[in-house]
Amino acid sequence: MKIKVIIVDDETRARSFLRKLCELYFRDKIEVLDECNSVTAAVRSIKKNQPNLVLLDIQMPNENGFELFKHFEVINFEIIFTTAHKEFAIQAIRNSALDYLIKPIDVEDFKIAISRFEQKNDSKIGIDRFKLLTENISSQFADKQRIVFPNKNGFEVIQANSIIYCKSDGSYTSIFTIEKEYFTSKTFKEVCDILEEPDFIRVHRSYLVSRNYIKSFKSEYYRLQLTNGAEIPVSEDLFTKKKLIDAITS
């Protein structure tokens, strides 16, 4: 069964480009049902055509892409956001385990996003993530920001301020919080992109540490001691002793 797609963008050229990507690389997998130039038109088309996937521009006249959610009690389709701006909302999208593409859209990024969509088969996860997105947008800079980390069974919702440190584990990442250890299918780089400075410091190529849980630094062994008893190596290539102190205290 083909993936039924609706493209939503106020720019004709952008809609045409996305259609061409679908037809060129996923002709046997994707059927583009409609192209819409506004949220209002998209709502009508979605209700009529019942797509599996909506390629949704964020910045549009009158209403931005996020306004789409207000028109649906249940969202039973997936969304890949598209935007020309790396504004704060991108962080909210990322934290909600949703996909986005930065314009100009790279072909390989587009292919990866579609492949990720194909791997998603739990509609309940989608509904929960869209609810979480609206919360993350409204409380982007809140102290108790909630972040979604996908795992093999679905996902975990973790309070960012409960994370003590994260450790690279091949293509996956271990996340150590006050309560327990979590294992996510996100790569270490993706986790580092989500948990940004100044609250989190990448002290080693395999370790990301929360400043709030650093207890002491052992310069003899070049290791940080954390409040949960863990000892984390610090890369001397990344930090001198002074630079580390500045990073922790700034």
Score class of each variant (00 low, 15 high):
residue 208 L to G: 05
residue 94 R to H: 07
residue 167 K to T: 10
residue 210 S to T: 07
residue 135 E to N: 03
residue 205 R to D: 14
residue 212 N to A: 15
residue 2 K to C: 14
residue 222 Y to M: 03
residue 64 N to W: 05
residue 121 N to G: 02
residue 207 Y to I: 09
residue 141 F to I: 13
residue 191 V to L: 06
residue 150 P to T: 09
residue 51 P to W: 01
residue 138 S to K: 15
residue 168 S to C: 11
residue 80 I to G: 03
residue 107 V to G: 01
residue 39 V to P: 05
residue 210 S to L: 00
residue 183 F to W: 11
residue 128 D to L: 12
residue 167 K to L: 02
residue 45 S to I: 14
residue 246 D to R: 03
residue 43 V to H: 06
residue 127 I to Q: 14
residue 177 T to F: 09
residue 228 N to Y: 01
residue 128 D to A: 14
residue 146 R to L: 11
residue 243 K to H: 05
residue 49 N to D: 08
residue 224 L to H: 00
residue 246 D to F: 08
residue 76 N to D: 13
residue 8 V to R: 09
residue 230 A to V: 02
residue 174 S to F: 10
residue 40 T to V: 12
residue 141 F to V: 02
residue 139 S to Q: 14
residue 10 D to T: 10
residue 92 A to Y: 00
residue 69 F to W: 08
residue 231 E to R: 10
residue 122 D to K: 04
residue 160 A to M: 13
residue 151 N to C: 05
residue 172 Y to K: 06
residue 76 N to L: 15
residue 209 V to H: 02
residue 119 Q to P: 01
residue 171 S to M: 07
residue 16 S to R: 15
residue 216 S to V: 12
residue 198 P to K: 09
residue 213 Y to P: 05
residue 183 F to N: 10
residue 173 T to P: 07
residue 36 C to F: 13
residue 13 R to G: 14
residue 139 S to V: 08
residue 214 I to W: 01
residue 43 V to A: 02
residue 102 I to T: 06
residue 188 F to P: 02
residue 208 L to W: 01
residue 100 Y to F: 11
residue 48 K to N: 15
residue 3 I to D: 07
residue 178 I to E: 13
residue 112 I to L: 11
residue 198 P to D: 01
residue 157 V to Q: 01
residue 47 K to R: 15
residue 146 R to V: 08
residue 225 Q to S: 14
residue 160 A to F: 03
residue 173 T to M: 06
residue 46 I to G: 08
residue 150 P to H: 01
residue 50 Q to P: 10
residue 224 L to T: 00
residue 33 L to A: 03
residue 188 F to G: 04
residue 93 I to F: 05
residue 143 D to K: 11
residue 173 T to D: 04
residue 247 A to F: 09
residue 250 S to A: 13
residue 112 I to V: 06
residue 110 F to C: 00
residue 225 Q to F: 04
residue 233 P to M: 04
residue 63 E to K: 09
residue 216 S to H: 11
residue 189 K to V: 15
residue 79 I to K: 01
residue 10 D to P: 07
residue 174 S to Q: 04
residue 172 Y to F: 01
residue 46 I to P: 04
residue 61 P to I: 06
residue 33 L to H: 02
residue 128 D to M: 13
residue 220 E to N: 08
residue 8 V to S: 02
residue 74 V to Q: 14
residue 103 K to M: 09
residue 174 S to C: 00
residue 248 I to T: 09
residue 129 R to D: 01
residue 8 V to T: 02
residue 100 Y to I: 07
residue 162 S to H: 11
residue 219 S to N: 14
residue 211 R to V: 10
residue 21 L to A: 02
residue 33 L to R: 00
residue 156 E to R: 07
residue 179 E to T: 03
residue 230 A to M: 02
residue 81 F to C: 00
residue 214 I to T: 04
residue 131 K to R: 07
residue 141 F to N: 02
residue 76 N to Q: 13
residue 31 E to Y: 08
residue 227 T to S: 09
residue 18 L to R: 04
residue 195 L to M: 09
residue 145 Q to A: 13
residue 218 K to G: 06
residue 30 I to R: 03
residue 39 V to S: 02
residue 7 I to M: 08
residue 194 I to H: 08
residue 187 T to D: 05
